[in-house]
């Protein structure tokens, strides 16, 4: 199983790669400027978090839009990647009512595939000033926190998942299980 981590400039991109390595996945980090032809052979993509403010620096998200449009396999988008994905498909983002930095209590509204087997509430690690304000019709909300109503999403008909929080950070409880659940989707639906 080959999963590429698309680097959007986040401070924890390397940790995303490391979790996948720990889970024995063939993985590497690629710049978000990588041509689609060089990522399309992967079984799945992880769109990393990033430093750009997606609301006003979408240009720094490179080819994420191309990947989302053309990549046929599962995609897990984290933080800035999640925000970009939601806006790319027609949603909107803006300044968070209450920016989250540090630990937050995640409330799982629907398991989807990502939260399969996990508690209904657990601690996650956050680092964001902006948040998804409106969701595209093609997506549904899977989880929220007390300060952010759209913490996790999935596409209704494609294996696309978005997380506002950071599952790759140690302070996120069940972070490895979230990645494992994503890899189960990859294993089930890879070409």
């Amino acid at each position: 199983m080959k999963v590429l981590v698309v680097d959007n400039g986040g401070q924890w991109t390397h940790r995303e790669w490391r979790v996948l390595k720990y889970l024995k996945v063939d993985t590497k980090i690629v710049p978000n400027s990588t041509p689609f032809e060089e990522v399309e052979e992967a079984d799945a993509l992880v769109l990393s978090g990033g430093s750009p403010s997606v609301a006003c620096e979408a240009g720094r998200m490179g080819n994420n839009g191309v990947y989302l449009d053309r990549f046929p396999g599962p995609i897990l988008a984290i933080c800035a990647g999640h925000q970009f994905m939601c806006t790319h498909f027609g949603g909107s983002i803006g300044p968070a009512q209450r920016p989250e930095f540090g630990a937050a209590a995640l409330h799982v509204l629907e398991e989807g595939e990502i939260f399969s087997g996990l508690p209904k509430q657990f601690q996650v690690w956050e680092s964001h000033n902006d948040e998804v304000k409106s969701l595209p019709d093609a997506f549904q909300v899977l989880a929220r926190t007390d300060d952010c109503p759209i913490e996790a999403v999935r596409h209704r008909s494609r294996p696309l998942f978005g997380l506002q929080f950071h599952p790759e950070v140690e302070n996120t409880e069940h972070g490895y299980e979230i990645f494992q659940n994503f890899l189960k989707v990859v294993e089930s639906w890879k070409r």
Binding site: E113, S116, S157, P159, K184, V185, E187, S188, W189
Partner: peptide, 15 residues
């Protein structure tokens, strides 16, 4: 989920 996915994939059903 895995078992169901396998059954659907065997029938070329989409995600």
């Amino acid at each position: 989920e895995q078992s169901l996915s396998r059954a659907l994939r065997r029938r070329d059903q989409p995600y």
